[in-house]
């Protein structure tokens, strides 16, 4: 049906990588190539090619602006022309799927991740930096969080209950220390993020390797004692009083922050 073909052709002019050149060369042929009957394509106004280009620019600019807003440091490093090409490629190959506009940056990163990881022309830290920047929106907007506490005190033989927004992120670079222009140090980094229950701001804690090892296990649902034991085994450190005192202090701090709610 020509109605549906018109919609398909219009969408293709926004989505397909080679659409700008094809539309400019012969807009009626472009529509015909997408199934629009020639007599219908012939009725397109003279301005059709120019207006389709405007629509394409509007769609892509909106997506690009959202990505740059959520990933400001990443966008600066990519530069405007590269980000424009990335968005064009993203729309053509994957595109946003969710009806929620704010989520598109996460969808974009999911698509860009494997590409950037193997792209030697980009800074080695860029993907980590982008993921860290996105974490702020991801955690800040997470539908989880603010759950009622179980009311049970921590117990060695029980798993723990975290606030639903708690995330552990590991990076090969200290991306949280990157400025708009300075590269982050190449340094294995573990960050704990959570959304504050009072002011709803996303808080970031830089974890020691042992705190990260314990947290990873607790987040996976291991009982507290097993998490402590397995973390020491992994790191090759003794399960001694100093370690236990440090972890007790760490967990008490998380509880005070509302990130750790007690035993599950």
């Amino acid at each position: 049906m020509s109605e549906e073909a018109l919609i398909r052709a219009f969408a293709a002019s926004v989505i397909e990588l080679d659409a700008p050149a094809a539309v400019q060369a012969d807009v009626r042929q472009f529509f015909a190539r997408h199934g629009v009957p020639p007599e219908v394509a012939a009725r397109l106004p003279e301005t059709a090619a120019e207006r389709l280009a405007i629509y394409r620019t509007m769609v892509h600019s909106r997506l690009r602006a959202a990505v740059a807003e959520f990933l400001p440091k990443t966008a600066i490093r990519l530069g405007r022309p590269r980000l424009r090409r990335e968005i064009e490629q993203f729309v053509a190959e994957a595109a946003p799927k969710a009806p929620y506009f704010w989520r598109l940056t996460g969808e974009f990163l999911e698509w860009a991740g494997p590409r950037w990881a193997s792209d030697a022309t980009l800074p080695g830290y860029l993907l980590d930096l982008a993921r860290h920047e996105w974490s702020d929106a991801e955690v800040g907007n997470d539908p989880a969080g603010g759950e009622a506490a179980s009311g049970k005190p921590l117990a060695l033989d029980q798993p723990v209950q975290f606030d639903g927004t708690v995330r552990l992120r590991r990076y090969a670079w200290a991306v949280h220390r990157a400025t708009e222009t300075e590269a982050p140090p190449a340094e294995a980094t573990a960050l704990l993020l959570y959304r504050d229950r009072n002011d709803h701001q996303v808080k970031t804690l830089e974890l020691t390797p042992r705190a990260a090892a314990v947290t990873a296990r607790l987040l996976a649902g291991e009982p507290l004692q097993a998490a402590l034991t397995d973390a020491c085994a992994e790191l090759g450190t003794p399960l001694d009083d100093e370690f236990l005192a440090a972890m007790a202090g760490y967990l008490a701090d998380l509880a005070e922050r509302g990130a750790l709610l007690g035993a599950a």
Binding site: I7, V14, I15, M58, V59, R62
Partner: peptide
């Protein structure tokens, strides 16, 4: 309008053909 096509969410208000079938 339409704002998605073939599973791709385009996040804009794109025009429709003005026909009875549409």
């Amino acid at each position: 309008c339409f704002s998605a096509h073939d599973g791709k969410m385009l996040h804009d208000l794109l025009p429709l053909p003005w026909t009875t079938a549409s």
